[in-house]
Write a protein that binds this DNA or RNA. Sequence first.
DNA 1: TTATTAAATCAAAAATATTTGATCAATGAA
DNA 2: TTCATTGATCAAATATTTTTGATTTAATAA
Lengths: 113, 113
Amino acid sequence: MKTIIPIHEVKTKTTPNDSFFESYEARFKALADRKRLQIMYELTQRGKTCVCDLCDIVDMAQSKLSYHLKILLDANLITREVIGTWSYYEINNSEVNGLLSEELCCIFRPTRS
Amino acid sequence: MKTIIPIHEVKTKTTPNDSFFESYEARFKALADRKRLQIMYELTQRGKTCVCDLCDIVDMAQSKLSYHLKILLDANLITREVIGTWSYYEINNSEVNGLLSEELCCIFRPTRS
DNA sequence: TTATTAAATCAAAAATATTTGATCAATGAA
DNA sequence: TTCATTGATCAAATATTTTTGATTTAATAA
């Protein structure tokens, strides 16, 4: 699986090359799904949340939720913390704020900290 | 006693429904392609540009470019002006600024006007 | 008129992404 | 130990997107 370069390191000094656009493509692809946007929304509202709770909240089969969480995680839009058998996911504030407008604040991105 | 939610708070106090997420899905889908991001970048840099010029600039076959422009147009991220047989495309400033962060200014979104 | 150019659209093929159900690995409890 | 629970991963089936080359439409020039 491809590693996503953190958003603040990706900024261009010269004409962007293909890997520059590729890097943003990965982030926007992760956002380009209504189910993943709903996950982003719930994590924005609730803060750090356990997968088992999220399963009920977004009404999704476990393997399907896991698939979508992985896409958001690989895009660096959320982070994961494992405690015992539980996994907790949380919005990656700096990444999301660096990508989305202030108008989207409280919907998909948290308030600026 | 029922509490009336002030209109400017309705957006965040009400749980978004599927069509809300669907609407953002469409925008992010349009951005979720490196070729379309390159088109956005070039339009941001150059301003209103003719399809025939864009074809050379992004080095893309005409029908392919037309396909990608339609996706951006349908997502309301760019606008079109037809003059004779030429089509000129331009960034839709307000839409893009309402969606993307200020950090992306000058890359995919124009400076705030 | 005919020829040329710009650009949208179409249909088929190819490439990607998503869903589904099953399985697996790890943790903790009985 | 055995059992139950959490959640990641796998492979196959579906579904969706993208690419390609051909065709079409419209405008203009010869």
